[in-house]
Design a protein around this nucleic acid. Structure first.
Lengths: 199, 199
DNA sequence: CCGGTTTGACACCGTTCGGTGCCGAACTGG
DNA sequence: CCAGTTCGGCACCGAACGGTGTCAAACCGG
């Protein structure tokens, strides 16, 4: 049952297809994912892909947004924790978990989607670099707030702590992409938390 | 001056050209680096590339070996430090430094060369995953030795410490690829070392 | 029932991909 | 000097790349 609309109805679920596109970009990277890979995984034709999402780059942006709201949602959730330590703990636990979920690609789309790129992937690489930088800025701002409320000492440097936490999250993503188990990555997160605040 | 050999002499320096190939794979990734990119950077023709190095995959293997002996040499050097703490310090300092050298690509070839890959890059991805795993095993073995000599306490788990150190090194590489400065990354390394041993 | 709109099957586009053949150039050794 | 070997310019290969045009199908609204 859907809202009345004119024209031939779509023969596929746009959201379900986008979910498939997300996993293809996640597993194969922007440059490694061809239109053939994408359309086969999504179960639609090239024509439908262009009509529904735009070109390959547009699809990638949409897939990243879906990632951010799905597997990457732990970021926004972690920021809502009451203390800086709990923010960091939730953030790293989320990184470990979302990078090792059964039935989904290993690692993080934001890290491995286009870390190095040739001419065709440069825009995607820049989109992801900006995306990671934004996430780190959100962490820094949250840690700033923690200093202001006394949750972190005045001597704490939110910028450095945010970079430290993001570096470990990025490393966890690489480890996950290399096949590490969630339990092992959680132990890295735990070791990090035993040294809190880090600076 | 070179050893007498039959046949037309090469018109290019194979080592210098391989150095160029290394930087192209490092900056653009395996799938992002086309034969056109490679031959233009190396200053040779496709014919010469095939004759001197083999196919694209063979060239990649050779480029990785050159990386290991050049920018990545800090790994072998760090392993020779007298204590576990100094091994970790040298390892992380090396990661921060080699990922931010002026005139060379940012990040680490072993991390960003092929973290996610499509069909054509799968072998390169597996080569790099194995390469990183090997480096981590060397760290673990060195930390095992440190436990045996009393440099690390008996309760220390070399496997976990190696993963912890490698995770941070991997994260430093991602941060470098995203534009982080050497100084900032060295501060991440310093923060890590303030918590030693980590478990 | 038909015009209008949107979708999708199918074929196709120009370009680039990784890779190779032909043949002349540049050497060595007899 | 010539046969043999290796190198490299040039053109070219089949396949795959991202992307598009034509036309029938599937709907809505009058």
């Amino acid at each position: 049952m859907r809202a009345s609309q004119i024209g031939r109805p779509r023969a596929f679920d746009a959201e379900a297809a986008l979910e498939k596109a997300m996993t293809v970009f996640w597993a194969q990277g922007y440059e490694g994912a061809s239109l053939t890979d994408l359309t086969e995984a999504m179960g639609i034709s090239r024509k439908s892909l262009y009509a529904a999402y735009g070109n390959k780059e547009d699809l990638f942006r949409k897939a990243l947004r879906r990632y951010e709201e799905g597997p990457g949602a732990y970021v926004a959730e972690a920021l809502r924790e009451p203390t800086a330590r709990e923010v960091a703990a939730a953030f790293l636990a989320g990184a470990a978990r979302s990078g090792t979920m059964p039935g989904l690609p290993a690692g993080c789309l934001g890290v491995q989607g286009a870390l190095a790129a040739g001419g065709t992937g440069r825009t995607a690489r820049d989109i992801l670099a900006e995306w990671r930088a934004h996430g780190q800025a959100l962490l820094r701002d949250r840690f700033r707030q923690a200093v202001q409320t006394g949750d972190l000492p005045d001597s704490a440097d939110p910028e450095k702590i945010a970079r430290y936490v993001m570096t470990i999250a990025n490393g966890i993503a690489v480890q996950a992409a290399g096949g590490a188990a969630c339990e092992d990555l959680q132990q890295v997160a735990d070791a990090t938390l035993r040294n809190w605040p880090p600076a």
